[in-house]
Amino acid sequence: MHVSHIEAVPFYHFQPGSRTFMLGGASCNLDCQYCSNAYVARAEPAPLLYFELAPERIVALAQQHGCHNITFAVNEPTVAWPTLVELAQVAARAGLPLGVLTNGYVPAEIAEQMAQQLAFVSVSLKGFSDAFYQRYAGVPSVRPVLRTIEILSRRTHLEVVTPIVQSVNDEDIPAMADFIAGLDRNIPWHLFRLLPEYKMATYERPSIEALDLKLQQVREKLHFVYLGNFVGSQWVSTCCPACGALAIERISLGGCGAKAVAYHLQDGCCGQCGYKLPLAGRWVSWSSEDKVA
């Protein structure tokens, strides 16, 4: 558990600037060969579950630390779905939106429940073929993930994350972009330059220049494409899709996301051209004690 910038999770379009109470557990339903969090995802869960906390206590801790929302990250949240639903309900009553990072590999029924219970969700779309999921994630098919994204895109705030492994899934980028754009061009898509660990620790790090080149065409399909997971990234700020003006400035301090450092919108609209950006929730300054739900 710790206090974090919501952009560090990363969520760039939900209550930008806000302070999130981030927590996680242990275990996962996938076995990604390059997992960066194998020490929690693939390890024996019991020694890693440090705290036994009631939902009310988690909410109290989030409030005590001045957090504007709660995010379940680090490991797959649906491995403890019933207790997460309890937490979402208690948090909602306290005015704290709850969001998660998920691999999306869940039954349709759970995806429907996620849409109903969660205020914001990030789905990791790791590849675009059954073969990829079979070889690198240990499950038979990509289809449940695509179905989850479709369901969530209609009913809650959704962002999509894709870790890029050089020569493994970078060729899937155009197809993934077409799929996301087919649902909604405004869905933020975060591409991570993956630093492979676990069973693929010897794989090379993706070339940033080559990735940026690949993304140039993608940026014509989707309004909000980010490239990160490396310190100093210059592709983590939000620009107005209508005129290109800087809307939200961020700096990448390493790790998955970034930190918001400046907000240039006025009532959610571009200061240059007036275009209304599709953000969920308004800007919340880190030090603000406002409730924002």
């Binding site: 790090r205 070339s207 940033i208 210059q234 700096i251």
Partner: peptide, 14 residues
């Protein structure tokens, strides 16, 4: 970050 460099104002991060 290997194969890619950037220079920042160390005080502001820009």
């Amino acid at each position: 970050v290997t194969e890619w460099q950037t220079i920042v104002d160390f005080e502001t991060g820009y």
